[in-house]
């Protein structure tokens, strides 16, 4: 009983420390505290509404999509088509970059190559179509189109460099569903 409680405290130590910082800051700067509560709350509300279906879809993909399929389409031998598919998958996504991490984990575990996972991360961060539409209306088509095209190039350069410089042992996406924690 106390052991599980202790383990829980340990797992949440970063979150608890931040809560403490929040409390101290709210006391020191009382006029900031409504905004602090509002921002923190809306953050949690937003993520907690989006994350459950995302994780459920990942679980379903896990049981339905066979490893061979992912391997063939996105694996080490998938070539330029695999990379382009990753660009497409990332661009079709919505949500902040940290939403891409669990998706990347499933992709990699199912056999997508590390290079392709990096391309996917890059595409998710910069090429999202819904975002590009928004960008175009705010900053103009020339701006967003130039940025989009330049970023396709940057994504490939960054993925290539990371793929080269990381030692093979580091080129993996850690599973978060248990025993290999740290």
């Amino acid at each position: 009983m106390t052991k599980t409680a202790l383990a829980a405290v340990k797992r949440y130590r970063a979150a608890l420390a931040l809560l403490l910082i929040d409390a101290v800051l709210a006391l020191v700067f009382p006029h900031f505290s409504p905004a602090l509560i509002r921002n923190t709350w809306s953050n949690f509300a937003e993520m907690l509404s989006v994350l459950p279906p995302v994780f459920l879809i990942l679980g379903l993909l896990d049981v339905w999509v066979p490893r061979q399929t992912v391997m063939r389409c996105l694996g080490p031998g998938s070539g330029i088509l695999g990379a382009l598919l990753c660009i497409f998958l990332g661009a079709a996504a919505a949500g902040p970059l940290y939403g891409a991490f669990p998706v990347a984990e499933t992709m990699h575990r199912k056999g997508a190559s590390y290079f392709n996972v990096m391309v996917f991360l890059g595409a998710w961060s910069t090429l999202k179509i819904p975002m590009a539409i928004f960008e175009t209306s705010a900053l103009g088509a020339r701006f967003s189109l130039t940025r989009w095209v330049t970023n396709v190039f940057v994504i490939f350069v960054v993925a290539t460099v990371i793929n080269r410089v990381l030692p093979p042992a580091e080129k993996c996406v850690r599973t978060t569903d248990g025993n290999d924690g740290e």
């Binding site: 797992r11 949440y12 970063a14 979150a15 931040l18 809560l19 910082i21 929040d22 800051l25 900031f32 905004a35 602090l36 921002n39 923190t40 709350w41 953050n43 949690f44 993520m47 994350l51 459950p52 994780f55 459920l56 990942l58 679980g59 379903l60 896990d62 049981v63 940290y98 669990p102 984990e105 599973t175 978060t176 569903d177 248990g178 924690g181």
Partner: peptide, 28 residues
């Protein structure tokens, strides 16, 4: 599928919570 979903969600949740708190601080 449900087991996998819950396991990976609850295992990463402490880290998500920390990041969300950090983002809340930063936005303020």
């Amino acid at each position: 599928a449900v087991t996998k979903c819950c396991r990976s969600f609850f295992n990463i949740f402490p880290d998500f919570a920390a990041v969300l708190l950090l983002v809340g601080l930063m936005l303020t």
